[in-house]
């Protein structure tokens, strides 16, 4: 195909690929990652794991797999990987703000929970006790308040 008059901003033209092999490859990658994520999500349910290291490891794995999916969608489907470095950096560098954004706010939420549990006994009693009761079913039969 001729590239004349497409846009004056474009100095170097990308040659369009002839086959759709790459697209379908990424489709299978996305599908398999999604299945694995789903399996892990269901394992959380099936094992009914208590809050702890194992649960956090599984959730962490799911998050990393989702980031891999995001990478494939942006890089191949949105063709960002084919653009020049200058362009990629103007998109990717501002997104680095998310690292601070997520860490700061999650930390804030967690600290709010700890403060409330510490200084509001009624709140702790209302929410934590129920949860423990749910976790160890046969141990507390008489706890119907």
């Amino acid at each position: 195909m001729e590239h004349a008059n497409v846009a004056t901003e474009i100095t170097i033209h990308h040659e369009p690929s002839d086959s759709t092999k790459r697209i379908w490859k990424v489709f299978w990658i996305l599908l398999i990652i999604t299945m694995v994520e789903l399996g892990l999500g269901l394992s959380l349910y099936a094992l009914s794991l208590p809050e702890g290291l194992r649960m956090h490891l599984i959730k962490g794995t799911i998050i990393i797999l989702s980031l891999a999916k995001a990478y494939y969608i942006v890089s191949v489907f949105m063709h960002l990987g084919d653009e020049i470095r200058n362009m990629i950096m103007t998109i990717v560098v501002p997104l680095m703000l998310f690292i601070w954004f997520i860490l700061a706010f999650i930390y804030d939420g967690n600290s709010y929970k700890n403060l409330r549990n510490k200084y509001d006994p009624y709140y702790k009693e209302r929410t934590i006790e129920q949860k423990e009761k749910k976790a160890e079913t046969p141990a507390q039969p008489g706890g119907k308040d």
Partner: peptide, 30 residues
């Protein structure tokens, strides 16, 4: 799209903040 991702990001992070501030949160599988 970059700015829109910040909009969605802000929503989801707000959700995460509230979720982390709770002692109990419903499990999606239920």
């Amino acid at each position: 799209l970059m700015s829109d991702s910040f909009t969605f990001g802000a929503f989801l992070i707000s959700y995460g903040t509230i979720r982390f501030s709770q002692n109990y949160w419903p499990s999606p599988s239920y």
